[in-house]
């Protein structure tokens, strides 16, 4: 479903993604696990046509995101780290805008929107403005909206950031349910070890723009002879806190943005 070979992305002289290769199979839940600034979001942005890679080849459902952007966009749904809901509008109107943007047929999308809102427990609140929703409700709505056009792949970038454990559990149950019911491939990023362990079939550990290891959570634990994925993760990426490295990448991104503006 997703094929990435020797993908590289540099901002100025800094390599945010450094020669990574991996494959995501149809229907699987695949997690990118790594500390902040490891290159997770950059990879998602490249796969979802928002950034151009500096090098390497990639295929999303057999298509090249760089050259067939519109076709690729029809095939995935995405939930960004920061909410992209229109808070002045109602939940239903947010779904409606999405349906029109994706050119869905009126009689088809309305039924699907109802099914999704019902299963995400938002149907009773469909006519409320999103501004009054809780963080968990907003996230659920975003995922429901991302699934409205029946995508092949659902990208979730840190979907549970800032949610309490109850909401996180609920969210993962819903995502797994959709994955089972529709066979939608899920590509998610997280820095919560327990989430990767519980939700994903396979996990890629990424750090400093490089993939450290890929496998099932069990494989990773076995290879590092750790008792939990958290242990395995720490033994692979080191235990020190690295604020500096993080801000460097962010800083380079900012600088490059300013340059490219001229």
């Amino acid at each position: 479903m997703i094929l990435v070979e020797n993908l590289t992305k540099s901002f100025g002289g800094l390599k945010a993604v450094d020669n990574i290769s991996f494959e995501v199979n149809r229907g699987e839940i695949f997690a990118f696990l790594g500390p902040n600034g490891a290159g997770k979001t950059t990879t998602i942005k490249i796969l979802t046509t928002l950034l151009r890679p500096s090098g390497g080849t990639l295929r999303v459902d057999g298509l090249d995101p760089g050259r067939e952007a519109v076709e690729v966009r029809k095939r995935f749904g995405i939930v960004f780290q920061d909410s992209t809901l229109d808070t002045d509008l109602t939940a239903w109107e947010n779904m409606e805008i999405h349906a029109y943007l994706y050119g869905l047929a009126r009689n088809a999308w309305r039924g699907r929107a109802e099914t999704l809102l019902r299963s995400f427990e938002l149907w009773d609140r469909r006519d409320d403005r999103v501004a009054v929703f809780s963080g968990g409700m907003k996230r659920r709505l975003e995922i429901a909206r991302g699934l409205l056009h029946t995508p092949q792949i659902l990208f979730l970038d840190e979907p549970t950031l800032g949610l309490d454990p109850q909401h996180r559990n609920h969210l993962w149950a819903l995502v797994k349910e959709r994955n089972k019911a529709e066979g939608v491939t899920v590509f998610l990023t997280t820095h919560y070890m327990d989430e990767a362990e519980r939700s994903a079939g396979r996990v890629a550990v990424i750090d400093h723009g490089k993939i450290v290891d890929i496998g099932t959570p069990q494989d990773l634990k076995r290879r590092t002879s750790a008792s939990s994925l958290e242990e395995a993760f720490l033994s692979m990426t080191g235990r020190s806190v690295r604020e500096e490295g993080v801000s460097n990448v962010e800083e380079m991104r900012q600088v490059v943005r300013i340059w490219s503006r001229k």
């Binding site: 979802t48 046509t49 928002l50 519109v70 076709e71 966009r73 029809k74 995405i78 960004f80 920061d82 909410s83 992209t84 809901l85 229109d86 808070t87 805008i97 999405h98 943007l101 994706y102 050119g103």
Partner: peptide, 14 residues
Amino acid sequence: QFGVLRETLVAPVP
């Protein structure tokens, strides 16, 4: 600033 625009920019429309 609030990300609303991003939803439209990844949509399959020019």
